[in-house]
Design a protein around this nucleic acid. Structure first.
Length: 778
DNA sequence: TATCGTAGTGTTTTT
DNA sequence: CACTACGATA
């Protein structure tokens, strides 16, 4: 057997766990490639294998005649990248396989990037850490830290979040005397954001505005906003993309450096890229070895500028592009998959594909009509407890809703039922007031120009520096083109500020002293010093209320976050830390090691999968939401894609529910079942599997008529009853399958007792006493 | 200047 | 409902 055939065989064996399509996707590495990957088609594995393939074999499989790489080639490649020679690798293709640091993988979350690195490490033994993997924002951050000066920022520029943007815009509009009633800052910001997503400059927006006064005003505010951000040495999320594009467009050397460095570029979730990101990808993937992975049916971020056109026009944008479709689903049962297919086929604007699976039908989809949102929650809680009682875990369950506000009703019931749960998204740790305060301090210490953060903390804790003082100082700063901080520190020079001058200058000295510490002291020590020197901790301690105690605890928690960061990073820096926490996404914090039911929005669930999924609030006006019902067919199609994403999260069991009446935002409304529910063929569903609810739900006459087919007619309600045997912590028991164990915790619930038992062989499990059929040994 | 109270307001989805 | 923003008062 000749060498090449042998080699081919080795590769085929190495990736023998891939199906034919997947194998093709893994080994097609040269030139543009679009992988249309349906939900659950194993695209993550494909991506990982593709990188592993590249690093191990280069382009060997396709261009078998290219000689096996030699030491000399390696050296040549190294030299090339070090800029010692201008000769690119021959034919534009690599002769030697690329190194991990020559591969760029853009993922949707930081967590996905981390997993990618880890799994590359596991597969190749090493090298994962060198891989450039991250979200658009973190990759841009990394590039910008290095070249920010080329676009007018310093290397430790600040990142403004939505709240900072809001504050800044409110200030700008106040300065410009714009009436918020006519033009809310919210709409200005969203207009600016979509302009940035499309790479439209303030000048261009002004031109586009023509004579429309409202549009002209927005463009003018945009111009000021951009300037103010630059003065503050700050970027918002959109800026990170915009300025990276600007950097690469205007600096040939930088563009060439990255385009040459990244010989292979991969972009996941391509359907959710916006125009700016699209341009960025084009600039980075100068070499043409671009592979994008996406699913037009899962495009759910139109509201933040994502355009499905990017995926629909990929072939035109990159001539000669190859398209590979992955349509075999390995995640869900046939019933779940068919339901998803049935729903999405009602959309018109799509590439069109039908997922199939070899797995069996599985459970039917449980459809449940609840009286109201409380009953809906109870039903789910009962179902989860039943599963856990049978030996299941909490963490295999997920509840998905359309908006964060819907979590409250579920949390209430879950907490009372003794269900361990975790809410992803909503109010985040880093959005708490006390945390934002400390972050503001750190940001100001890091960057004195940061006026927005400075305003936040100048009188927190109270220093007797009021709004009037700050506004006066801001005016002086604006007139002289000096930063607010500098005015504060030179307060004695201005008559207007004489009254507060001493206080202002003391404050500035404290900040300056803290800034001096950055070089000499560890990050956590710096944070300690900030808490100490600024009097923030002392002020909280002095308050002596429950709330202050709570906040103090959160502050401590924050300090341990800092310590954690220090341990995780080889060279921890203040700006690095601040950037990292600005860019964490909600799902990054998801840890599948703790056993808890996961609750989150459908958006947040993208890319995740669970054995048992509960979709709540499938009602007209909720899902699809009113906005989309009245917002035109495009909006509705996006909503349907969202439904498709929701359904395809489930592996084994899917439950969809809707409530006849729902209390939301303080009002009780009646909603009809969602149209998406009607799009699922009835034969796949099992309607209203009536169960014994643990509590009496009062049903009024009028309501009874509404859903007589369902809950209303079933009036038999099981009374809460104590379990046959009373269990207490400390008892030793025997379970049929788990063996002998000791009860660690016994939590009485409405009609049963939840037991936490430490088994000798299988570890700690949570069981329901009535289900577990335990034998008491002692 | 700080605090308290009330009125008003807005609520998709997120890096 | 829950939060914020603003205005009146101490």
């Amino acid at each position: 057997m000749d060498y090449q055939t042998l080699r081919k065989q080795i590769i085929e064996k190495d990736f023998s766990n891939m199906n034919d399509r997947q194998f093709e996707a893994v080994t097609t590495v040269n030139g543009p490639l679009l992988i249309l990957a349906g939900a659950g088609s194993g695209k993550t594995t494909v991506l990982i294998n593709r990188i592993a393939y590249l690093v191990r074999y280069g382009n060997a499989y396709q261009s078998i005649e290219v000689p096996y790489y030699t030491e000399a080639d390696l050296a040549a490649g190294q030299d090339y990248l070090d800029g010692k020679t201008d000769t690119p690798p021959q034919d534009g293709f690599s002769v030697r396989p690329p190194k991990p640091w020559e591969i760029l993988a853009i993922t949707f979350t930081n967590k996905a990037a981390g997993e990618l690195r880890e799994r590359i490490d596991r597969k190749l033994g090493e090298g994962g850490a060198d891989l450039w993997a991250g979200t658009f924002h973190s990759v841009c951050g990394r590039i910008l830290r290095r070249y920010a000066d080329r676009v007018g920022f310093s290397s430790h520029f600040t990142i403004y979040d939505t709240d900072d943007q809001r504050r800044l815009m409110k200030q700008i509009m106040k300065d410009a005397d714009v009436d918020e009633k006519m033009l809310p800052h919210r709409s200005v910001l969203s207009a600016i954001s979509s302009a940035k997503d499309s790479l439209i400059s303030p000048q261009e927006l002004m031109q586009m505005a023509g004579s429309n006064p409202r549009q002209k005003m927005i463009a003018e505010l945009y111009r000021i906003y951009v300037r103010r951000l630059q003065e503050a040495d700050a970027m918002d999320f959109d800026d990170m993309i915009v300025y990276t594009v600007k950097l690469l467009r205007e600096n040939d050397d930088v563009r060439e450096y990255y385009a040459n460095r990244f010989r292979y570029v991969m972009v996941d979730e391509y359907q959710d890229t916006n125009h700016a990101q699209y341009v960025l990808i084009g600039l980075l993937a100068g070499g043409g070895n671009l592979c994008v992975v996406g699913d037009d049916d899962q495009s759910i971020y139109r509201f933040r500028g994502a355009t499905i056109e990017n995926i629909l026009h990929f072939e035109e944008d990159y001539p000669g592009a190859k398209i590979i479709r992955l349509e075999q689903n390995y995640r869900s049962t046939a019933n779940i998959l068919n339901a998803a297919n049935a729903v999405i086929k009602n959309n018109i604007g799509r590439k069109g594909k039908t997922l199939w699976t070899e797995s069996g039908d599985g459970d039917k989809i449980a459809v449940y009509n609840a009286a109201d949102e409380k009953e809906e929650a109870k039903h789910i809680a009962d179902d989860i407890l039943e599963q856990v009682g049978k030996g299941g875990t909490f963490s295999q369950h997920a509840v998905l809703y359309r908006m964060n506000a819907q979590s409250a009703a579920l949390e209430n019931v879950f907490a009372r039922s003794g269900i361990t749960y975790k809410v992803i998204g909503g109010f985040r740790f880093f959005e708490r007031k006390e945390i934002k305060d400390i972050l503001a301090y750190l940001n100001v210490v890091n960057n004195h120009q940061d006026g927005i953060r400075l305003r936040r903390i100048i009188n927190e804790p109270k220093r007797g520096i009021g709004e009037t003082t700050v506004n006066r100082a801001a005016q002086v700063a604006e007139q002289n083109g000096i930063s607010l901080f500098e005015i504060f520190s030179r307060a004695d020079e201005f008559a207007l500020l004489s009254r507060a001058a001493a206080k202002l200058q003391t404050f500035c000295q404290t900040i300056d002293a803290l800034s001096d510490l950055i070089e000499d002291v560890s990050l956590s020590e710096l944070v300690e010093q900030v808490l100490e020197q600024t009097g923030y901790r002392a002020a909280l301690q002095a308050e002596n209320t429950e709330e202050a105690k709570d906040r103090l605890e959160n502050v401590m928690e924050f300090v341990s976050t800092v310590k954690h960061y220090e341990e995780e990073n080889e060279e921890p820096t203040l700006s690095g830390f601040l950037e990292e926490i600005s860019l964490v996404s909600d799902t990054d914090s998801l840890d599948e090691n703790d056993d808890a039911v996961v609750m989150m929005t459908v958006h947040a669930a993208k890319g995740l999968e669970f054995d048992r999924v509960y979709l709540v609030g499938w009602e007209e006006g909720i899902f699809p939401g009113n906005q989309s019902i009245y917002g035109g067919p495009e909006e509705l199609e996006e909503e349907r894609r969202l439904a498709y994403v929701a359904i395809t999260r489930a592996k084994k069991h899917l439950s969809i529910s809707h409530a006849a009446t729902r209390m939301l935002f303080g009002q009780t409304g009646r909603n009809l079942p969602s149209r998406f529910l009607k799009e699922i063929p009835p034969e796949l569903c099992e309607e209203n599997k009536v169960r014994f609810s643990s509590t009496v739900i009062p049903v009024t006459e009028s309501k009874k008529r509404e859903f007589s087919s369902g809950f209303g007619t079933f009036s038999s309600v099981k009374q809460p009853s104590a379990p046959a045997v009373a269990y207490t912590a400390g008892q030793t028991v025997e379970h049929k399958t788990f063996g002998v164990g000791m009860i660690v915790k016994a939590t009485p619930m409405s009609s049963d007792t939840m037991l936490e038992i430490a088994f000798e062989k299988v570890g700690t499990k949570k069981l329901m006493a009535n289900f577990a059929k335990l034998k008491v040994l002692s």
